[in-house]
Design a protein around this nucleic acid. Sequence first.
DNA 1: ATGCAAGTTAAAGTGAACTTTAAAAAAAGA
DNA 2: TCTTTTTTTAAAGTTCACTTTAACTTGCAT
Lengths: 143, 143
Amino acid sequence: MEKVLTISAIARRSGVKASALRFYEEKGLIASERSNSGHRRFPRSTLRRIAFIVFAQRVGLSLEEISEELDKLPKKRTPTRDDWDKLSSKWLERIDKKIAEMEKLRVGLTGCIGCGCLSVDACKFVNPDDRVAARGPGPRFWV
Amino acid sequence: MEKVLTISAIARRSGVKASALRFYEEKGLIASERSNSGHRRFPRSTLRRIAFIVFAQRVGLSLEEISEELDKLPKKRTPTRDDWDKLSSKWLERIDKKIAEMEKLRVGLTGCIGCGCLSVDACKFVNPDDRVAARGPGPRFWV
DNA sequence: ATGCAAGTTAAAGTGAACTTTAAAAAAAGA
DNA sequence: TCTTTTTTTAAAGTTCACTTTAACTTGCAT
């Protein structure tokens, strides 16, 4: 069991492509030392970090948000299970919020089918006020 | 109450920007006649169509999927409430699937906190097999 | 020694869903 | 009539999360 891992070893064990790992490093989400020849050497703890990233993405966090979360981990020592647990607690909120939103859509949909109100004027689920405002250019996401 | 609406009227009533409406028309999601001078004139039924689009997006359908759904509407006559209801039934499935996925993440998260297994090797929620394969370049989405 | 796999970088490309820009024409209000 | 607002088009720009490409250097096995 090696102490450090190459990029392909990390990729194989995490299921995240090497190109994505380089991208994450560029964004500061993970870090590596270099071998004499300049090749990346990742500490084993990187695997847990990547697990966090992947899970957080599924929960709906953007890489920027994930980055902010990861910045809360202690820098001087290897994060303990407790450190990780603290970050994850935020996910429950997020997950519950997502579930709640879907439930709301579900109720809205049933309601709209029931009353036939699927129109911009009447249906509060398609109402502008109910949607998030676009921030800047690019795709608009409906939280 | 006018029979046809200008693009700004549609934008105001739907909360969807004129630029997005033009984009939707380009993609064939909505259609318009033209005035003598070449200005768009949308039939009132466009509002309902846009309501459908916005709602469907919140449920998680892509514009392409939405386009396919809209193509199922009758072309010869104005769609009835029944026509719309048929399309919406697909949403319930989709919503329930989304809710189920979040519940799964929730259970997984609780489990991972409980057993401290948030690692790539042990946790089935961050396991590669559990994730969708990337199809082509671009962002990867975890269904 | 030779050859191939694996690693490096910077820069450009990708896909979705739009937005912005620019230049010109038409409609509406004072 | 004059001015302001609205609308038109085509083309280029934007964001996110990566991937691909190209040109090169290293590592490892034969």
